[in-house]
């Protein structure tokens, strides 16, 4: 079954709803994300990514169309929308700015507590989430405001993971972190997804990160979905990506330049390891070049 499904969803923000300047943030979007994988969501600024993401957990309500999680229309009973917020955990951009509690553990427990969980289960959830997010145990009793930037980010991430969502949505989870921090946090998310079978949706501007961690990619442009394909196929179509102001990973650009110069390395290169293998293969067959 599809973890996330959207059927002809359209949406416009308040002031842009009517009148001559009416502009849709989402325009007749239909998509289906299978359960269990990691899907990337890319698009230029203002293409509707953040709006789309807030549709999935019911922060925004579509003007037209339906949003389904595990085949259930989330707006069938508007009063029960909260249960879908627990089902689809959303980590917003720069989530460290939403920390508020006295200790990290209390902050992580905020979500599960809202679900009505009690003492022991709460404790277990906090520890489990902290482990997935890569937070050491001794940090749990500290004030969240004493943590470093990267640790704060992880604490905020743990706060959502602790709700054990079936779908985890992350808006730019690695923005503003150094390369090691990016690897840690994205690697942790990937491990979490594989171990728990959680469906993950990541919004990012970093094509390298997308290439490294995503199984398939949704490309948005001008409030519509341009394509939704496996990662290799998306990046092999670099002409179309460029036409909507998007880039491809550096190594794909190298491959593109090689192809232009008559070296047939193939259009499906998007990780360095794969490229190295391909080049070796080509050299082995053709030692003079």
């Amino acid at each position: 079954m599809n973890a996330i499904e959207m059927r002809h969803v359209s949406f416009a923000y308040g002031s842009a709803k009517n009148g001559p300047t009416a502009k849709k943030a989402l325009d007749d979007i239909s998509l289906a994300v299978e359960s269990g994988g990691i899907t990337g969501l890319i698009g230029h600024t203002g293409s509707g990514k953040s709006t789309l993401v807030q549709m999935i957990n019911g922060l925004l309500k579509p003007d037209e169309g339906e949003v389904l999680l595990d085949g259930v229309n989330i707006w069938a009973e508007p009063k029960k929308i909260r249960q879908f917020r627990f089902k689809a955990g959303l980590v917003m951009q720069y989530p460290e700015y939403q920390l508020f509690a006295e200790t990290v553990a209390e902050d992580i427990a905020f979500g599960p507590k809202n679900m009505g969980l009690e003492k022991d289960e709460l404790d277990r959830r906090v520890r489990e989430a902290a482990r997935f997010a890569g937070l050491a145990d001794d940090l749990l009793q500290k004030s969240p405001f004493d943590l470093s930037g990267g640790q704060k980010r992880r604490a905020a991430l743990a706060g959502v993971i602790a709700m054990r969502p079936k779908i985890l949505i992350l808006d730019e989870p690695a923005a503003g972190l150094d390369p090691a921090g990016r690897r840690d946090i994205l690697g942790g998310i990937k491990r979490f997804s594989r171990e728990s079978g959680t469906t993950v949706l990541i919004v990012s501007h970093s094509m390298e990160d997308m290439a490294m961690y995503c199984d398939d990619i949704i490309v948005m442009a001008h409030a519509k979905i341009l394509m939704h394909k496996p990662t290799a196929e998306v990046f092999s179509d670099w002409e179309q990506l460029a036409s909507v102001g998007l880039d491809v990973p550096l190594i794909t650009r190298v491959a593109a330049a090689l192809i232009e110069n008559g070296v047939d390395i193939g259009r499906d290169v998007y990780t360095v390891d794969y490229a190295v293998g391909k080049v070796r293969e080509l050299l082995g067959e053709n030692p003079e070049s």
């Binding site: 807030q54 957990n57 922060l59 909260r82 917020r85 627990f86 955990g89 959303l90 917003m92 989530p95 939403q98 508020f100 509690a101 905020f110 979500g111 809202n114 679900m115 706060g159 959502v160 709700m163």
Partner: peptide, 25 residues
């Protein structure tokens, strides 16, 4: 938005509960 996504509820409960719900904001 961020706290709502974690299930915060600002619209139900008595005055004290609603007041407490504002702390995370």
């Amino acid at each position: 938005n961020a706290q709502t996504a974690r299930g915060a509820d600002f619209t139900s409960g008595g005055l004290i509960k609603r007041g407490k719900a504002l702390v995370p904001i």
